[in-house]
Amino acid sequence: MQRRNLLTAALTAGVTLPSWAQDRFPSRPITLICPWPAGGSSDAVMRAFGDSLARQLGVPVVVENRPGAGGTLGASLMLTAKPDGYTLTQLPLGVYRLPHMQKMPFDPVRDLQHVIGLTGYTFGIVCTMDAPFRNLKEMVTWARARPGQLIYGHTGTGTTPHLAFEEFAHKAGFTTQDVPYKGTAEIMQAILGGHVPVMSGTPEFVPHVKAGKLRFLATLGRERNRAFPDVPTVKESGWDTVSDSPFGIGAPRGTDPAVVRTLHDAFKRTLEDPHLLETLDRYYQPVLYMSTEDYGRYAQRTFEAERLTIERMGLARKG
């Protein structure tokens, strides 16, 4: 009774309530921003996470698509969102890369609360069946003997498939002619039409590999993808290039640590949800869990590593 009277008096006087008198988090719907268009693989995965998170927390989770700016609009929106845990965003790798290439409104280390690392994209290198090489080492030998003659396509200048392939080429000692395309659909048309003999991209090429139209040369992850146990990684083939392209969840800087902990624990439980894991498998995305602390350290390391890569490739913004 005394507690109820204190609560009533505080509300009447407009006094800030102590933590025990405030709403328990979460008590209303959460908005989860997917910074990609609806209908794609990223959208499907984020909606699966949203559905599972809603089951874990017992409140609705609304997935909001905010595509554009290389997947960084969600991070930009964190600057104006209240740090109360009710607005979250996916944090793709571009969040740490694009600020080195163009002026962005946020600093990914200073302005974001990294909640949890969840999964990551699988990238691979494939070639046409009539290419003059049958595996990655043969491709490197061919390219070294013909400087600048290896033509490959990718999903856009500065994207992970582009930069990962260029890093691999640099370490393997060959030069290329890269052809940027506007997205996965366009690059698939190009390689299937014979306009480029090699591509670096996401696993939308898998059905064409299974149909015998393309040859899968390597994946770019740290370990072999369990969906492709016979396909080697670039790293195990002899060149230390790894691009797991991890992503996780971010919140506005200043979010209450107790709220962050609640969100972290709930998202971690989603990684045990069979329905969620089935969706990840469907899009060849491995579980790449990072705790709140580890994810924050990852952000710092990745932001600096991306700066060095962008500067080496001459893509750094001026000023």
Results as ranks from 00 to 15, higher is better:
Gln2Ile: 02
Gln2Trp: 01
Asn5His: 08
Leu7Phe: 09
Val15Pro: 01
Pro18Cys: 09
Trp20Pro: 03
Asp23Met: 10
Asp23Ile: 04
Arg24Gln: 12
Ser27Leu: 02
Pro37Gly: 05
Ala38Val: 10
Ser41Arg: 12
Asp43Asn: 10
Ala44Trp: 04
Val45His: 03
Arg47Asp: 08
Ala48Thr: 00
Gly50Trp: 12
Leu53Lys: 09
Leu57Trp: 08
Gly58Pro: 00
Val59Gln: 14
Pro60Ser: 01
Val62Arg: 14
Asn65Trp: 13
Gly71Phe: 08
Leu73Ser: 10
Ser76Gln: 15
Met78Leu: 15
Met78Thr: 03
Lys82Ser: 11
Gly85Ala: 07
Gly85Leu: 11
Thr89Cys: 02
Thr89Asn: 03
Val95Ser: 06
Arg97Pro: 03
Lys103Trp: 10
Arg110Asn: 04
Val115Trp: 08
Ile116Val: 15
Ile116Asp: 13
Tyr121Asn: 14
Thr122Asp: 08
Gly124Lys: 04
Gly124Thr: 01
Thr128Lys: 14
Thr128Tyr: 07
Thr141Leu: 12
Trp142His: 00
Ala145Gln: 13
Arg146Glu: 06
Arg146Ala: 02
Gly148Asn: 09
Gln149Trp: 03
Gln149Met: 11
Gly156His: 06
Thr160Asp: 11
Leu163Tyr: 02
Phe165Leu: 15
Phe168Ile: 00
Ala169Asp: 15
Gly173Leu: 12
Gly173Val: 02
Phe174Asp: 03
Thr175Cys: 10
Thr175Leu: 12
Thr176Phe: 13
Gln177Ile: 03
Lys182Thr: 04
Glu186Thr: 04
Gln189Tyr: 06
Ile191Met: 11
Leu192Met: 15
Leu192Thr: 07
Gly193Arg: 09
Gly194Tyr: 07
His195Pro: 00
Pro197Glu: 10
Gly201Lys: 03
Glu204Thr: 02
Val206Pro: 00
Leu214Gly: 05
Leu214Ala: 08
Arg215Val: 03
Arg224Gly: 02
Asn225Glu: 07
Pro229Tyr: 05
Thr233Phe: 07
Lys235Asn: 13
Thr241Phe: 09
Thr241Ala: 04
Thr241Tyr: 03
Ser245Asn: 15
Gly248Asp: 08
Gly250Ile: 01
Gly250Pro: 03
Ala251Glu: 14
Thr255Val: 13
Ala258Tyr: 04
Thr262Trp: 12
Thr262Asp: 11
His264Gly: 01
Ala266Asp: 09
Lys268Val: 00
His275Val: 10
Leu277Ile: 05
Thr279Glu: 14
Leu280Cys: 00
Arg282Gly: 06
Tyr283Arg: 04
Tyr284Arg: 06
Leu288Arg: 07
Met290Glu: 12
Ser291Thr: 12
Glu293Cys: 02
Tyr298Lys: 04
Leu315Ser: 05
